[in-house]
Design a protein around this nucleic acid. Structure first.
Lengths: 251, 251
DNA sequence: ACCTGAACACCGTTCAAGT
DNA sequence: ACCTGAACACCGTTCAAGT
């Protein structure tokens, strides 16, 4: 079945992906050494991921290319494809282990306060790791070290009277608030760095528009200020109050 | 000042960008015709933007390239740079006018219900225009036709007792909820299309992890289902309740 | 089993020149 | 004023071959 050499190579890539999952980073390697089978590896998969992560940390997702990683670890671009299936997989692998680099904070005993504290910890951590936010938009929860936060949020939600299902939904809503804030905060910063690029709102408002948009027209002058003053903690507090008020309410 | 021909060309690009802002799409053109000055234009700026928008609608942001737009409007890539400053500007220009293609819905008189209705309208509209969500992550509010939604949200918030400033913050929070939901809904759909790509959570949980993450372990089996069952309307309702409860509370 | 080299089919953008 | 052509410095990935 599909028995070309190429297919066998693909399976090897699968093995490496599996290693990231079951946390046994040297098992396959040792096996190969013990068996004395195959060519000795010149390229350590860990080096690929570490280099990719460094580029992401220093310069962001846009700067990461397979060719650049290859150059910096000292191989050809194609050697990488032996260890990862494609660029997306490499991006996912860079995520593993990042949460463990941040110390786990002391959390308040009160469940409502804990809910807010964990959510703010997520926000604060990711604000300092903007590349993680970019990679996370690909979708998956891949870093096991980050799961304690989800566990705490769901647990605190349940302690506050939510059903487990409601608590998971609450987690997702809080995550949307955190993620949205981080994305648009970054977008603002990027635009601030390019001062010649035109700002559209509220500058584009004409007098005719102002008549139809009275509230926005009144706020136009302070809009920039308002955008900067957005206080995540305060807003998340309000969102949590709303989510917890669901407790015991019929579906 | 900077008096090379090249600088003059750049200014022309500036003129076109300005036209999008002050809604006088033919002024510069007519002036040129009247004056009989310069070479007659072969390439209509509107055609560039329209073609770009068609590609975005049909195939998404990843499929849009300057070279492809150029080919489809029948010019060279470089001709485009006469009408837009760069690819980012072209993306922003495609946004203008999209909100006007969606009929404005009837809204309930009750301000709390109106808040929810407008937010859901935003969500529903953008769910049908995934490319807009992708472009919006660049940051700016560029489509004047979309401002009535912000106005309604701020207005309804004020009617519910929020200060204008609180109402703007509430708008941003609601926008984060809408945007986050759309981003991760899309990510889920994309991953569903590639069935061979491995799912990480909750499959990566070992028994040891399960002991430390009791709530997540208990929910592991129903996780996929839970993710699909997320009901935006219900969650936005809860968020709105929380945001409105801020009314009258000290800062 | 692991790696290389050449190639394919692309990118955004600059520069100098043409009409 | 508007457009072209060639070029620069890149991409992700496939394929066939080498050890």
């Amino acid at each position: 079945m599909g028995g070309t050499l190429l297919y066998a190579y693909r399976n090897q890539a699968g093995v490496w992906a599996g290693r990231a999952r079951d946390n046994e980073p040297v098992a396959a390697e040792e096996k190969a050494k013990k068996r004395g089978v195959g060519r000795p590896r010149r390229l350590e998969p860990e080096a690929i991921v570490a280099t990719a992560r460094r580029i992401l940390e220093e310069e962001g997702v846009a700067a990461l290319s397979m060719r650049r990683v290859a150059k910096e670890v000292g191989t050809t671009p194609m050697a990488l494809y032996h260890h990862v299936r494609d660029k997306d997989e490499l991006l996912m692998l860079t995520l593993a282990g990042t949460a463990a680099t941040v110390p786990r904070p002391e959390l308040p005993a009160d469940p409502r306060a804990r809910l807010l504290a964990v959510t703010l910890h997520m926000h604060g951590t990711l604000a300092r790791m903007p590349w993680v936010v970019e990679v996370l938009s690909l979708g998956d929860l891949t870093d096991k070290g980050a799961l304690w936060m989800v566990e705490e949020i769901v647990g605190a939600g349940v302690e506050c009277g939510l059903t487990p299902v409601e608590a998971v939904r609450a987690y997702r809503t809080l995550w949307h608030c955190v993620y949205g804030d981080l994305v648009f905060r970054r977008a603002m910063e990027r635009r601030a760095e390019e001062p010649d690029r035109k700002r559209y709102f509220p500058d584009m408002l004409t007098d005719a528009d102002a008549a139809e948009l009275p509230h926005l027209a009144a706020l136009a002058d302070s809009w920039a200020e308002l955008t900067e003053d957005y206080d995540v903690a305060r807003q998340l507090g309000a969102v949590i109050d709303g989510l917890l008020a669901q407790a015991g309410r019929p579906e």
